[in-house]
């Protein structure tokens, strides 16, 4: 008899609440339950909740000082008391010395911080012709595409989770609400709310395609966009133009499987990305592929160029030639 699944069972499984242990059969029943997808989606969406109330730090601090008398308790008062000077007088010299002492301390701290910063230098990953898997200290994993650079700033995983990307990468980020994962790219950044996505920052054009979850994309100009699964964002740094769209024609490099994945992608998109992936030139002239069937291929592990070309030729009425010596893919004919 099939197990009865409650909404809270789904919730317990999603949140991995270790107060509850599910057998394999129970787990299967929950995952197959008709409510699972919608509850999972509601759970993910609810993370977007952001109270509208604006709390002013300045007003808060003023109120704090009215409520709690901290001035009588501070170092300046101690110094004045110790010096035997009436608080109402202006203790210029001591105030000056105090300011100097504070300034000296701050300079000293800044110097120590700077030294520590340089001693604790950033970790830089720089790929040439290979894709690199990077296991981060916080259990996030990043797969860095060829010809890309990722810089992990000092203090990553303890003080912050900020990286700098130049090139293309796939991110699978471990959730941590206290330390949001942030990717800096020129004049923009992406703040991750727990998700999996592809991101590229090449020649001043940033492309973000979301596979799961949500991310927040922000520019230095103060624009901010929340992108959810199934959406794509393109940002051109030079013109500051941002475009968002549903992903209905896209390819995603499924890096973690060392493979490729295409969903409803156009022939031109597939061939262009394949040529980039294998580092082959694409020769294509005089043939339109606009009317061709869209291509969907998933879980292609350890892809081989010849096999992929055969698969494409079996899906679309197209003749392709591959020349390994000159590293070229040629579109010979299209009959769509």
């Amino acid at each position: 008899m099939k197990r009865k699944v409650n909404i809270s069972d789904i919730h317990k499984l999603i949140t991995k609440d270790d107060s509850f242990v599910f057998s394999d059969d129970d787990r299967k029943a929950i995952l197959e339950d008709s409510n699972y997808e919608s509850i999972n989606s509601v759970w993910e969406d609810s993370l977007l909740y952001t109270p509208d109330e604006s709390f002013s730090p300045k007003a808060g601090f003023d109120s704090f000082k009215n409520r709690f008398d901290i001035s009588n308790d501070s170092r300046s008062t101690h110094l004045i008391k110790n010096a035997g000077i009436d608080v109402k007088q202006k203790p210029r010299k001591i105030f000056y010395l105090r300011k100097m002492a504070v300034a000296a301390s701050i300079i000293l701290i800044a110097a120590v911080v700077s030294v520590l910063f340089f001693l604790n230098t950033a970790t830089k990953y720089n790929t040439n012709d290979n894709v690199q898997n990077i296991a981060m200290i916080d259990q996030s994993s990043i797969v860095l595409d060829k010809q890309s650079t990722l810089i992990e700033k000092p203090g990553y995983g303890t003080d912050h989770r900020t990286v700098v990307l130049n090139g293309k990468a796939n991110f699978d980020i471990k959730k941590n609400k206290d330390l949001p994962f942030k990717i800096l790219m020129g004049s923009s950044s992406v703040e991750v709310l727990g998700t999996q996505f592809d991101l590229s920052n090449m020649n001043g054009i940033i492309e973000l395609a979301l596979i799961e979850g949500k991310v927040r994309f922000s520019t230095d100009g103060g624009e901010s966009y929340e992108i959810i699964a199934g959406e794509r964002l393109t940002y051109v740094e030079k013109t500051l133009k941002i475009n968002t769209s549903k992903i209905d024609d896209y390819s995603v490099f499924s890096w973690s499987n060392n493979g490729l994945r295409y969903t409803n992608a156009s022939v031109s998109h597939v061939l262009t990305s394949l040529s980039q992936y294998f580092d082959y030139d694409l020769k294509w002239s005089g043939h339109s592929a606009e009317l061709c069937t869209k291509i969907t291929m998933t879980n292609i592990v350890d892809p081989k160029i010849d096999e992929l070309v055969e698969i494409i030729e079996s899906i679309v009425d197209i003749d392709l030639g591959v020349d390994h010596s000159s590293k070229t893919i040629e579109v010979i004919n299209i009959n769509c």
């Binding site: 709390f55 002013s56 601090f61 901290i70 501070s74 504070v102 301390s105």
Partner: peptide
């Protein structure tokens, strides 16, 4: 640690909201 009020002011600026 040095009882400087600026410390608490910074906490307000950075973390209050």
């Amino acid at each position: 640690n040095r009882s400087d009020e600026k410390g608490i002011k910074l906490i307000f600026d950075q973390y209050y909201r």
